[in-house]
Design a protein around this nucleic acid. Structure first.
Length: 396
DNA sequence: TCTGGGGTCCTAGGACCC
DNA sequence: TCTGGGGTCCTAGGACCC
């Protein structure tokens, strides 16, 4: 769901010259491109990254290169389906530590030019170019070209950039010309460039909202813009209805968020075969205990304390269920976490075969006694790989 | 042939307190 | 005996994103 609170009816539809200039930068087929860096022999072949790197493993496609996309393969698709569409593809397992490494490299390259960066995950960022470009789009285009070059010099990887007056439009813009593109969408271009696009191009309109919009014959962003806001409020509720209307008109006042505190951390795993809650209790309990260990280690490494522990189960029919408990006091020790997790498991009382189990810590706060005492963790620092983290912990 | 793992935010009911 | 709003916390579920 989109962040509704931060996009109230806005005034930036009438933003004068010298308004904001926001860039959205998206790495092209990031995981697949990283893999190709040391497998140049695969450049012209369809490459699919996902799961354990086997076409028949339980899992989904994490990324595929553009060659594989020609066969209809998409990220999020079950590996087995991808194997059907493109049997000749080369399958590779995901290697997150390597992607995190390249993620740090490309973000550092951008930061060398402009440090007003919002981290949006491993392969994309927003950059506020307003100050550095004096609010001038032509100037911003020159800077964007420099940024793309700096990213390439640092990683040998290409990216696509969208330039726009706000994050919502910039995000759509970066997708207009992929790979290795640079697109500019100004306010006056909304009607010609955005309105013809399907509503799903808007970040925050997902499959469910798409289906509901289709029911009232709304397919394009332009059709959404033409729909009275009252109709949207009736169908989608006050918040989301208003947000949909603003989005269709390209209105979005959200600021770039340079710092963010972590809200939750979780560890989950899908089994190779489904487990029965009673017949396979021993195996299940072992897996939960192991996830608790990983979670506790993760929290300690980052000097985080948790106030709530939760367990998630996914049944063989894909229905899922969560249970959580508040802890008496914030902590990150394994004993308390494990005790709470098993309490949740007992509350859940699973009644059919299970395909996934997860343990989650939420209500996080920094450990002021053992930690750095800072409430603000630079978002980029979240992407430290395990060895680097272990090394850091030793310093304390 | 089913459908990963890691997140964020929103909604909503009930408890509890003032 | 009946009964106000408001605020916050806890819990469960769901949509959406990378």
């Amino acid at each position: 769901m989109a962040n509704l609170s931060s996009s109230e009816p806005s005034t930036d539809a009438v933003m004068p010259a010298g308004g904001r200039v926001i860039a959205h930068l998206d790495m092209d087929a990031f995981y697949a491109s990283v893999e190709l860096l040391d497998r140049p022999d695969l450049v012209d072949k369809p490459v699919i990254v996902g799961g354990r790197g086997e076409p028949n493993s339980r899992g989904v496609v994490t990324t595929c290169n553009y060659k594989a996309r020609e066969f209809g393969v998409r990220s999020g698709m079950p590996m087995r389906k991808a194997a059907e569409l493109c049997p000749a593809a080369v399958y590779l397992p995901v290697n997150f530590d390597r992607y995190r490494h390249y993620s740090r490299l490309f973000k550092a390259a951008i930061a060398g030019i402009c440090d007003r960066i919002e981290d949006r995950g491993i392969d994309e960022v927003y950059i506020d170019l307003t100050a550095i470009s004096n609010g001038n789009f032509e100037e911003a285009q020159t800077i964007a070209i420099q940024i793309k070059q700096a990213v390439f010099d640092a990683t040998q990887l290409t990216c696509s950039v969208g330039l726009a007056p706000n994050k919502l439009i910039a995000k759509i813009a970066s997708d207009l010309d992929k790979p290795n593109g640079l697109s500019l969408v100004k306010h006056e271009d909304i009607e010609t460039m955005l309105w013809p696009l399907p509503v799903k191009k808007v970040n925050g309109i997902g499959p469910k909202a798409c289906d509901k919009l289709a029911l009232i014959n709304i397919w394009s962003i332009g059709e959404l813009a033409a729909t009275p806001v009252q109709v949207l409020i009736e169908r989608f509720g006050s918040n989301y209805g208003r947000w949909l209307n603003n989005a269709a008109w390209g209105r979005d006042q959200r600021e770039i968020e340079i710092y963010s505190d972590p809200k939750s951390v979780s560890k989950e795993t899908t089994f190779e075969r489904d487990l029965h809650p009673r017949a396979d209790w021993h195996a299940l309990a072992e897996i939960v205990a192991d996830l608790c260990e990983q979670l506790a280690a993760h929290l300690s490494r980052r000097t985080l304390l948790t106030r709530t522990i939760g367990v998630k189960l996914r049944y063989d029919n894909f229905a899922s269920l969560t249970r959580d408990v508040a802890l008496r006091e914030p902590c990150n020790d394994l004993i308390s976490i494990r005790k709470a997790a098993f309490e949740c498991l007992a509350k859940a009382n699973p009644h059919r075969k299970i395909r996934l189990v997860g343990v989650k810590a939420s209500g996080l706060e920094f450990d002021r006694v053992h930690g750095r005492g800072s409430l603000h963790l630079r978002a980029a620092e979240n992407e430290i790989d395990d060895e680097a983290q272990a090394a850091q912990v030793k310093l304390f």
